[in-house]
Design a protein around this nucleic acid. Structure first.
Lengths: 185, 185
DNA sequence: GATTAAAATGACACAACTGTCATTATGCAA
DNA sequence: TTGCATAATGACAGTTGTGTCATTTTAATC
């Protein structure tokens, strides 16, 4: 019964990410999005009432997946290395998250709700990293004379290190080596 | 002769930075800027023809100063530590630079020129870091088995590590320790 | 106090995105 | 094939920032 939909949420999310990655958040508006999807701008309003809800919904989904994937690190042989690997796999997520300050976070109640959920997920991520580092400290593989917050911060900042190698594996190897052993000759 | 100016470039730059730091680039427009400066919006057009030229001019000035200040690291006893110190001193500069993708870089020829200058200055910064690391390698204080680009990247990414301590000095101590010696227990 | 050069201002036309809604199109089912 | 539910659409009004310019204000000088 009734008419078929021409787009779905998956396409919406996909084009949202592509648009933002290619053109930045300033270029992210329903006019540009509609063009890429091949539908009229007003069609998108049947799916999301405004761009803030669309983008934050997408971010929540990204974060949820990332949080799930971090559990791999708990079971890995070298948890910290696995952490860096998972972390780097979500490099574009980090790029997406950087646009948060530019989002009108009070656009609608739903947007505020999404932002709250995102902060909760951030907290979970930090907790997981914290747990892993703590566990590594207890088994003596990580030093205990540096504030945990500084180590967590350094670990999380490694996603900003540009990938110069052909394979992500090499990047992970080098960064892990540096994080664990430092630059000292 | 003639009328006195009510604002100058210094005020313009100061309020520009404050506005962006407090409200983000999306809120940076001449209407908001004029309100903070206590002048009419059109007044600002007597100083800069558009916001892109204003913001990029300011960034060029910031970068120039940062590049100058990096020379301190060459003469310091612990060059890498000094590098981290100078680097961290310009934390708000890094925050400012993050808005670059949101600037309409083709707004006017002058904006394009400013962007070019900025890239040149970036190059200089990278060169200086490179030189310092190279020199440290030669004196055996830094290992040589990791790609220079990865080490430079890690060093530069440390500005993202949040400052948890009361004093910036403690932050520098810990980050330097981690960068040099790693997390290994 | 009149003159004048430079600065400040408000109004105007313009451009771009937003959100809504009445209308039109589609596809299934009776 | 007709009826109906749902999706898509285009047009419209509203909002906000942009850039210009004729006019007004200011202060130094004559």
């Amino acid at each position: 019964m009734s008419r078929k939909k021409t787009i779905d949420e998956a396409q919406l999310f996909q084009e949202t990410e592509k648009l933002i990655m290619e053109s930045g958040y300033a270029e992210f508006h329903f006019k540009a999005l509609a063009e890429r999807l091949g539908v009229a701008r007003s069609t998108i309003y049947n799916y999301y009432p405004n761009k803030e809800e669309l983008i934050t919904s997408y971010m929540v989904r990204l974060l949820e997946r990332a949080v799930e994937n971090m559990d791999e690190a708990f079971e890995a042989e070298y948890p910290v290395k696995q952490l860096i690997r998972v972390w780097s796999r979500y490099a574009n997520m980090h790029q997406m998250l950087q646009i948060m300050p530019y989002i009108n976070q009070k656009a609608t109640p739903k947007v505020e709700e999404n932002i709250r959920v995102m902060y909760t997920l951030f907290g979970e991520m930090k907790n997981k990293i914290h747990h892993i580092l703590k566990k590594e400290q207890e088994s003596g593989r990580i030093r205990e004379d540096i504030h945990m917050a500084t180590m967590t911060g350094l670990l999380m900042s490694t996603v900003q290190v540009p990938v110069h190698h052909n394979s992500l594996g090499q990047w992970v190897d080098e960064v892990y080596d540096l994080v664990m052993n430092g630059c000292k000759g």
